[in-house]
């Protein structure tokens, strides 16, 4: 009986680890820029806004800060925050893509993880940024309402600022 319970518990734990909070399994979803724009403009019901974190597996500061995104998902998803990671990794670099998926799984990124299916480098132009990480907030209509970038050396963003903005927009306290 004990053995059976232990097995069941182990199974349940494994299941929970796989599906996280009942969200989709951790995998990269390839979208072109146009598809990504459509995706942003059709968020799930109840979504107040979407936060997008642009990153790449070759970007150290992106990976160091990624847990902030996971944490914000845990804290604010129920309050209407939709979390999306956007990988700007080279779609032709299979090793980078494998590394990216492994990283996302390790970080338990139980939200939508997009891989931008465009020629390498095009993502920077489309997002109008020079460097990553960069974080964007989009309204439910898919329109950008706020951006946080590294592009001004005298005013680079922190994830603290991002979270403050998220909290303010959700109308609650941290």
């Amino acid at each position: 009986m004990i053995r059976k319970t232990a097995l069941l518990t182990a199974g349940l734990v494994a299941y929970l680890a796989c599906v996280g909070r009942g969200d989709e399994p951790v995998a990269l979803k390839s979208l072109t820029w146009a598809e990504f724009q459509k995706h942003l403009a059709s968020p799930p019901e109840g979504a107040k806004f979407t936060i997008v974190d642009a990153w790449a597996t070759t970007c150290g500061p992106c990976k160091e800060n990624f847990p902030h995104l996971v944490e914000m998902h845990a804290k604010y998803a129920a309050k209407g925050l939709v979390v999306v990671s956007l990988s700007l990794d080279d779609v032709e670099d299979s090793k980078a893509l494998a590394d990216a998926e492994k990283f996302l799984r390790e970080k338990r990124a139980n939200f939508t993880n997009v891989l931008l299916k465009e020629e390498f480098g095009v993502g920077f132009e489309k997002l109008d940024i020079s460097a990553i990480p960069a974080v964007f907030l989009y309204g439910p209509d898919g329109k950008e309402v706020k951006r946080f970038t590294m592009d001004d050396p005298n005013n680079q963003f922190t994830y603290d600022e991002v979270e403050k903005e998220v909290v303010a927009r959700l109308g609650g306290s941290k």
């Binding site: 970007c59 500061p61 920077f124 020079s130 050396p153 680079q156 922190t158």
Partner: peptide, 12 residues
């Protein structure tokens, strides 16, 4: 042109 690549984090 746009210089793009690895971000340079500046110490605050």
């Amino acid at each position: 042109t746009r210089a793009q690549g690895c971000g340079i984090p500046y110490n605050k």
